[in-house]
């Protein structure tokens, strides 16, 4: 079966696309999908990743279904800049405005 995987923040740049259709086995849960993606990205980006299924945060035990929208979410950082550590992912060059 197929699920649509959405990437946000640093992941969108790592995978160079906002989303992909991914073929998974029937009975696949969030934990299994997490393992698949774990191998595809650098450890730093994976730390404290959350997964949402159909726009709800989902634990590893949640089963996936055909057509589900699965979002891989790096730690969120909305609001005003806070006094928090910055991820050491330096992107190649400043984009010209």
């Amino acid at each position: 079966m197929r699920v649509r995987v959405l990437y946000f923040g640093v992941l969108k740049e790592l995978f160079a696309c906002p989303s992909e259709d991914v073929e998974v086995e029937t009975g696949c849960n969030v934990g299994a999908l997490r393992k698949v993606f774990h191998g595809r990205m650098p450890h730093t980006a994976w730390k404290s990743m959350a997964i949402a299924v159909n726009q709800e945060y989902a634990g590893d035990e949640v089963l996936l279904h055909e057509g589900d929208e699965v979002a891989l979410l790096p730690p969120v950082s909305g609001g005003a800049p806070g006094n928090v550590p910055w991820k050491k992912i330096i992107l190649p060059s400043p984009r010209t405005v």
Binding site: S48, V84, W86, K87, I89, L91, S93, P94
Partner: peptide, 13 residues
Amino acid sequence: FEDGAVWADGEPF
């Protein structure tokens, strides 16, 4: 920044 860009690392979930 003047010399590069970073994704802010939010607080852990």
